[in-house]
Structures are given as C-alpha cells and as structure tokens.
C-alpha cells in the first residue's frame, strides 16, 4: 500500500537518516536493508580544501532514494529559511524537513518559530515536513500555514526513549485522520516504531537507532519489518482489550464436562 507525501507516492513507510554510521559503506548497506525510499540529509559548511561533502554526496546520489533535506540545528526562523533556500538549490527538491530548535537539552522544536518559518516557506512553494511536537493547536496552525504533512516527535532526538506521550500521539491521529503523520525522532527499538504504526501513523523517520546499533544493517532490517508489521496491524483492525479471560478454544463439546464446570 503506497503512501503519498505531497504529490509523491512512495512504497516504504520507513524514512531513514544518513548520519552517525560507522562508515559510508555500512550506511549504504543499512539504507538498502531499510527498504527506504526517502533519506534525510543536511547541509554543513564546506571547506574548499577538504570538500568532505562532495564525497558524501557521491554516495547518497547512488542510492536513488528521494532526498529530504533538513534544517537541523537551526535556531532562528531566518537561519531555517536560508538553509531551506540553500537546500532547494543544492538538492533540487521543494521538500524540506523543517527544524527550528528551541532548546539545547531536549532539542525540542521552537513551535512558534516553526509555524512562522513554515508559512514563509510554503508561500515560496516549498513542501514542508515540519518537525513538531504532538500539540494539537500547533498542528492546526502548521496545517493552516500550508503544511500537508506533520512530523511529531516520539521523544527527544537521539534519546531512544520511544513514544513519550502515547495519548498525545493518539489524539493527534484521531484529530487529523487524513493528514499524513510521521513519527520523527526518539525511537530506540523496532517495537517503538511498531507501536507508532499501530496507532495509525503513516510512517516513521529515524536515524540514531539504526546508525548506532551494534549491527546497523541488521537493525535497519528489524525496523523495516516492525514498521511494516505495525502498519498491517493497524489496517487489520486489532481486537479490543478486555479485563477477563475469554477462552479461544471452543467450550462446547468439552470432554468430561459436567455441571460443576458451569
């Protein structure tokens, strides 16, 4: 079942980052194992002498994946907007994962700056993927600013804590049934990603949990299976929880049955 972000259809619900891998070849193998159609990348200062970014780019373009450039580390609207402009030119895509970071310990989004930057960028034709919190009012304002995808955090970036506010994420899903929602950040285990998908999220974006695993390639595969599994579970409509047991084996015709069983 393909998923659509803006006017682009992709088949994988796993968006993967390109940072923190032990080596470029492990990164490429992990991206391949993930089955991801979309990879996130960033922009950093390039030295005329070393040109480290040129090497990286030669690896990434060979993956054939769609590029989602981020504005990671930007702390002001102006920085984020200019970074988006530079990303659009260099990657030739209207897509941008918009981050405006508000606080260093939690790397949590400055949602006020985020909404302002999203408005500027969508008016300029960008297709914005905002990294936000699970706050409903912020989500409303991002949609009003022209965003057609929302990316609430699971937990602080790189923390591996999973879904810190399941209630909030569930509310967001229920409130915006038609908007593509991606849990971005804080995922540590495949079970966290499966849980996000079981809540009805459309996709999961993660990086550290794969890149810093002992075996990133195997972990990429584990996440791919969990994300697919969680999605299928959501579509398949799981049973409700109940407090007491309900026998799965039919009771009728039980041998040795007598009145004492009743």
């Amino acid at each position: 079942m393909p998923i659509q972000f803006y006017d682009q259809q992709v088949s994988s619900r796993f968006l993967i980052g390109t940072a923190l891998y032990p080596s470029p070849s492990i990164m490429l193998d992990a991206i391949k194992a993930s089955g991801s159609d979309i990879v996130t990348v960033s922009l950093r200062r390039e030295s005329g002498k070393e040109q480290a970014g040129q090497n990286f780019w030669s690896y990434i373009k060979d993956t054939g994946a769609r590029i989602l450039p981020n504005t990671a580390g930007c702390k002001t609207v102006k920085e984020a907007v200019t970074t988006a402009h530079m990303a659009r030119e260099i990657f030739e895509t209207p897509w941008v994962k918009l981050e405006v970071i508000g606080e260093d310990d939690s790397l949590q989004p400055d949602v006020f700056g985020l909404i302002e930057a999203a408005k500027i960028l969508t008016e300029e034709g960008f297709e914005v993927f905002p990294y936000t919190t699970e706050d409903l009012v912020v989500a409303e304002k991002l949609l009003a600013a022209g965003c057609e995808v929302l990316m609430p955090w699971g937990a602080p970036i790189g923390s591996g804590r999973g879904l810190n506010n399941v209630y909030g994420l569930r509310s967001l899903r229920a409130h915006f049934p038609k908007v593509p929602l991606i849990v971005d950040a804080g995922i540590g285990l495949p079970s966290h990603a499966a849980a996000a998908m079981e809540l009805g999220y459309d996709a999961v974006l993660l990086n550290t949990a794969v890149a810093k695993a002992g075996d990133p390639v195997l972990m990429a595969k584990a996440f791919a299976m969990a994300i697919e599994s969680g999605h299928l579970s959501y579509v398949a409509d799981p049973i409700e929880k109940r407090d007491m047991a309900a026998p799965s084996t039919p009771v009728a015709g039980l041998p040795f049955w007598n009145q004492e069983h009743a």
Binding site: G17, T18, A19, L20, Y21, M27, T40, V41, S42, L43, R44, R45, E46, G48, Q51, A52, G53, Q54, F56, W57, I60, P69, N70, A72, T83, M86, I90, F91, I157, G158, A185, L206, N207, T208
Partner: peptide
Amino acid sequence: IEVVAPMQGG
C-alpha cells in the same frame, strides 16, 4: 559568506 555542501543528517 557561507558555503555549504550536502552532509549526513537525520
């Protein structure tokens, strides 16, 4: 002046 290039990102 800022000069930037593609770099690893999450």
